[in-house]
Design a protein around this nucleic acid. Structure first.
Lengths: 213, 213
DNA sequence: TAGATTGTTAATCGATTAACAATC
DNA sequence: TAGATTGTTAATCGATTAACAATC
């Protein structure tokens, strides 16, 4: 169906896919049927050229003289992103951040199902977060062997990450959503998405500082 | 002191600054005194060329034959980022995510001081989060006029964001740390740092999906 | 001084934009 | 058919890397 092997797609294009998906979802919800690359470009603040270029990495989803069918394109992008095949996820670290993510995030709408939460702190083991009990980290091995999660959300400090990550990779984890500062680039064939909130806040600090004058 | 006007610096360079700052902080903490661009490049997974190029946007911080003084460079970058001039911040939306950010984030280490938290839900008004009382959103005007915050952390749904953002800009807010999906690109001369956690998770979904085979 | 490493210019690479023929 | 808009190639722009003279 898609015209290109997925391996060739540039990271810049991949990073834009969720945004396309989001905008198309809103248009669909608002009852629109079709959209041209020009109209979408104006809504999203991109060029029409870039949109056509991006979409054509995966196939010709449009129709000359018409544009794109919103419903169909939305679904195509979901499939490209892999949102339609739900993968199991676990979360390591049930502190403030870990709980907020567990509670707040629609994992299901993004291709994942959260099936386990782990922490090393005895006192919070057994507490429920979004219907999932916090398990002690000592049970990680057993749980993973039984349930075979493929991604792990890391909400622990860097110091603790190193050993847990090695363990998780041995247990078959293929991707990390990394909220820690631990550097995961050393691991081969593992998908990593870093969320460095501190870095983001410092970038804002730079931009505010240098626009205030 | 710096050789370039800040306006000329490319976004790619700016995005890397917090990471340099972080690595230099760790090296400093570990007791290292000097580092060459080559050594730093190996630790960070960049090229030495890029590091020298990046740093030279702001001035010649190194010394031929020696490298860079870690303590000095760390401080220079803090000053470039504006971390040394603390700015007042408020947080809008004290749900799971808002609370987690208020509790979890070291604002002070990133150039900000969190001085107020607001929500529209009567039942949580008065609750303390990290020593800060949750105020009703109706008091936003008065609070801002008295305390003059310059940045706002948006932890509310898109639907609610539109009107609050207009209000905040009128009240003098110059920058947004935006966790909502509300599109802030329409506002001129306002610094915006978007954190789209859902997009990040979908990007991970793509990468896991396409590396699993 | 000799060795090391920067600052900086030039070359390369990749990503974005423009243009237009193909086609619905 | 005529008008609109895509898919795709070519041109431009920006960012990264390589190279090396300057210099500590």
């Amino acid at each position: 169906m898609s015209k290109a092997k997925s391996g060739n797609i540039s990271p810049s294009v991949i990073k834009r896919l969720p945004r396309y998906y989001r905008y198309l979802g809103e248009l669909k919800k608002a009852g629109f049927i079709r959209i041209s690359s020009r109209e979408l470009s104006e809504r999203m603040g991109l060029t029409a050229s870039q949109i056509r270029q991006d979409l054509n990495c995966f196939g010709g989803f449009g129709q000359q003289g018409y544009g794109y069918n919103i419903q169909q394109l939305h679904q195509e992008i979901a499939s490209i992103l892999g949102l339609d095949k739900i993968k199991k996820a676990i979360l390591i670290g049930a502190g403030n951040l870990g709980r907020a993510i567990a509670n707040h995030m629609s994992f299901e709408a993004r291709g994942f199902q959260l099936i386990g939460i782990f922490d090393k702190k005895e006192s919070i083991v057994g507490q429920m977060v979004r219907g999932i009990p916090i398990r002690h980290i000592d049970n990680l091995d057993e749980f993973c062997r039984e349930n075979l999660p493929v991604i792990a959300v890391l909400c622990i400090p860097s110091e603790e990450a190193a050993s847990v990550v090695d363990q998780l990779i041995k247990l078959g984890i293929k991707g990390f959503w990394n909220f820690s500062h631990y550097d995961l680039s050393q691991y081969q064939n593992i998908a990593v998405e870093n969320v460095h909130l501190g870095d983001s806040l410092m970038t804002l600090c730079y931009n505010v500082t240098h626009s205030l004058k």
